[in-house]
Design a protein around this nucleic acid. Structure first.
Lengths: 327, 327
DNA sequence: TTGAAAGCGATACCAT
DNA sequence: ATGGTATCGCTTTCAA
């Protein structure tokens, strides 16, 4: 009977008469397979979990989760899976946790997509150790653990931007770091540095982290004003903006004297049309689902991080090297 | 052993030593209860389904689903349940269905909250017939079936607005109907009519449905211009607006000559600050969860529709009867 | 080809 | 007080 339900009719070579007989009986009795029992037996449910370390809907209007979820829902629907939203809070601290007094709550779903700005690395490690199939949106590195991440390809994007600067004739460039010790920032920096080396550019970045408000080191700014570099790449808009203002205070203009590119997405209606990245959040969500299902179909496979390309958006803050610039 | 896990330690009067012994064994072996098996056995999962007849996230920015989901997630989290988002589409037509070739897909969850502008009544009826525990947000009446709905209390709200008009001295009032044959509109109308009767007011509503663009019948408008009534209640803002403009064209002003109240929520930044309702969407979401869980805890209970009060928002379009009005 | 039976993991009841 | 066992509904294997 399961053979008929499972659709193995061809493989098992069941007489057509029998198939019809069973199908009629099914209709007659109003038989409905029980997904829970099915899951207990086969381990599959067509349920994919989504675990966010913060509440989703209250923030859905904001960009961070929303676009990811859009892609996740979209793709899940396409491949005929449902989504389990793990919402119930774990501890009294309000932070959401995967494990509630030792129990992995995600277990009802075949696997899960995890995301959140404040992912708990200990929980990720434990999840991996338990062999639970999951994918994390955004790179999270946990020593001694290989977790599968789906990540915007910041490294390539940063390199592409440096390449573009080099193509435009810039030879002395700098990097405005957010000073945040997080994987995605490390990715950007790595892309920048490898491209700088490859193109034989001179790196004239500020030494320390930015001051309060994202204002760079004054001494370094003076060097920039003296023409020490002609282009700058910034981790974030909140770094680029004070930088541009500091330049203006010293009589320099963007992009006339210094080109500036931002390594993150910038709202289309921002006051300055920065050259920036378009972070493919929706696509990342879709890819996360596909990666997760791949993991489920081939449990043994060792999946490395999946990179989703970023689009480089040309704005009004990058230009060719001006004639007047000191060599 | 289940006794210890289930926390029935007090009831079963198990020696403290044994409890500790088992708890240590649990930790030792890394035992983790399997929610699927649990569900199979007990029928409960702490999973609540959310079925929308359209995709949620793509519309999340819009008001319709968003506020409901906010309340749903919030309350589910509070009572320690997770949410299953039923996203996978049913047929090729793109419409989402509960039943996919006969299988009730909601069965993985203990029960479900259904919502959607285009709810499929046949599916609701079948769900009810199958004995699946669910709650519908918004009133849906299906002949021969009692489905539990959680609904904004439009009827009382409409009555309250009429009461307020009566208190302000209005004796001749009218109702601008959207002409939509839907339960929530019927609720509003019923509230209006019962209050009109109770307060002994004269009903001077237009005869037919509004014309294109929500413009009322011209003959009726002329009667209004002649002072046939002093207050109007409208199903929706798109009816109130053309009405006010038609009045203006006839030299009448709102609320000087005619008071107008709208029986739905109006955006706070709307050009006109209508007297209107505040539809408690978030609270409706919360109540839906509580009602559903109540249904699960007491399967036999026959729950009637649950009404969630609307707040009447005072704007600038309702005033007392002016002296000059014809008696 | 078809039917019978074992087992997935947890709970609840009935023996001990 | 504790250990054993039937049961939830399904899939899969093994016999007939």
């Amino acid at each position: 009977m399961s053979r008929v339900i499972g659709g193995d009719t061809d493989a098992a070579r069941i007489p057509e008469a029998t198939v019809r007989r069973i199908q009629e009986a099914i209709k007659e009795l109003g038989y409905v397979p029980n997904p829970t029992a099915r899951k207990l037996r086969t381990g599959r449910n067509r349920l994919l979990g989504v675990h966010t370390f913060e509440a989703v809907f209250p923030r859905a209007r904001e960009d961070f989760y929303f676009e990811f979820l859009l892609g996740i829902e979209e793709r899940a629907e396409e491949i005929d899976h449902d989504l389990v939203l793990f919402t119930s809070t774990g501890g009294a601290d309000g932070r959401r946790r995967v494990y509630r007094d030792g129990v992995n709550r995600l277990n009802v779903a075949d696997g899960a997509v995890l995301l959140g700005v404040a992912a708990d690395r200990a929980e990720l490690a434990r999840l991996e150790a338990d062999g639970y199939p999951f994918v994390h949106i955004g790179r999270r590195e946990v020593p001694g653990t290989r977790i599968t991440c789906v990540v915007p390809d910041y490294e390539s994007a940063a390199a592409a931007i440096v390449d573009r600067l080099a193509d435009l004739g810039h030879t002395r460039v700098g990097y405005l770091s957010a000073g945040i010790d997080e994987e995605s920032y490390a990715d950007r920096r790595r892309g920048y540095e490898s491209a700088v080396a490859r193109r034989g550019l001179r790196d004239v970045s500020p030494a320390g982290p930015p001051g309060p408000g994202g204002v760079p080191d004054a001494a370094w700014l003076d060097r920039v004003a003296d023409g020490a570099l002609t282009a700058v790449v910034a981790d974030a808009e909140w770094l680029a903006h004070p930088f541009a203002e500091a330049l203006a205070a010293r009589g320099l203009a963007v992009p006339r004297d210094v080109s500036v590119a931002v390594l993150e997405g910038v709202a289309a209606d921002a006051p300055v049309r920065w050259d920036c990245l378009e972070i493919p959040r929706r696509e990342v969500g879709r890819v996360a689902i596909d990666t997760l299902v791949g993991l489920l179909d081939e449990p043994g496979r060792d999946v490395t991080d999946v990179l989703v390309p970023c689009v480089v958006v040309e704005g009004e803050t990058v230009a060719g090297v001006s004639e007047g610039s000191a060599g």
